[in-house]
Design a protein around this nucleic acid. Structure first.
Lengths: 174, 174
DNA sequence: GCCAATGTAAAACGTTCGTTTTACACTGCA
DNA sequence: TGCAGTGTAAAACGAACGTTTTACATTGGC
């Protein structure tokens, strides 16, 4: 049994549900079913554990948005919130919780957001068959907005964003 | 000199910059220039202090979006991020940090987001001279998205959202 | 059969947490 | 003159923090 994977999965769940700072190491060891000695041998520190969680989450999220149309981006987000729930963006949340002062976390967040932006530009380019950084920025804002509005508005926020993106994309096509 | 106001202002700055959990009471008392005894006499607890911070921030933010057009909403947000910086939504952040388990905070956040949604519906209705809950939801998503995308994309995110809202509003007008 | 690796359980590290308490100084109004 | 109100400074509270250490059990390959 891969201890690191079990630990990372348990940590992601706890960090996401209760926050990074509010989650103590004892809760993590208990949830992962391992001693604190083993935990520290595997991940080194709490911050490095969070960095692993974020890297793994980035991998999973980016795999879901390997698509070729703007509309499919929002369909993927609908799936994502259905599976993962609506607690906002864990990357921005952990960055804000630490004030950007924890290097491992800040770097994982920056890497994810850069890749996220790049991917959106690629999808927009594939959809329009030309680059359109302005539309890409708008799609990024709509995805980010759907993610955070869904916290209190529910899945309706994602559908609203999807419809808005459809209109903006259609308008950009001609 | 009003101690409560000074305390609330100092607390807002620290909570916003470093996070709620990461900010200790000693930092708060030092920044507010008062003893911990006085602090507790005034606000009761750390959670109640955060609730005061959020209520005061809601008052200030809602005053800024007392406008009559959708475009003015985004102009107001541009001003807001210029003055307050781009660290995301303090309401959603504090709610996420506490996992929604701190009643005073959860209530302040819920009240703010309900009022925010209501205000957007009013502004959309005033702009179109008719109610349009679908456009209102899209505007809400764009505002939320601009706020959070601005954390890593800067003020460009707000301009992109503003332009998108302009297109959607114009389309809804006819 | 043994050594190295990998695991657990649990105590201890010193620090910091939010909060309360003790002891005292200043103010303004009766 | 005195007292109630409001403030400070600083110690103390027990609990929890992230991390390390001590002591021991289990494995698999040479």
């Amino acid at each position: 049994m891969d201890m690191t994977r079990k630990l990372t999965a348990a940590a992601e769940r706890l960090f996401d549900r209760h926050g990074y700072m509010a989650t103590g190491m004892d809760r993590l060891t208990e949830a992962a079913g391992m001693s604190s000695r083993t935990l520290y041998k595997h991940v080194g520190s709490k911050a490095q554990l969070m960095a692993r969680v974020l890297t793994e989450r980035d991998r999973r999220f980016m795999a879901r948005i390997e698509v070729r149309s703007v509309d499919a981006l929002f369909a993927a987000l609908e799936d994502w919130v259905r599976v993962e729930g609506t607690r906002g963006c864990l990357f921005l949340r952990s960055s804000a919780e630490t004030g950007g002062d924890t290097p491992e976390i800040a770097e994982a967040v920056a890497a994810h957001k850069a890749a996220f932006h790049r991917r959106i530009e690629e999808v927009v380019a594939a959809d329009l068959e030309r680059e359109d950084p302005v539309l890409a920025e708008q799609v990024l804002v709509l995805l980010e907005g759907a993610t955070h509005a869904a916290v209190y508005r529910g899945a309706d926020a994602v559908s609203a964003a999807r419809a808005a993106a459809g209109i903006l994309t259609e308008r950009a096509r001609t």
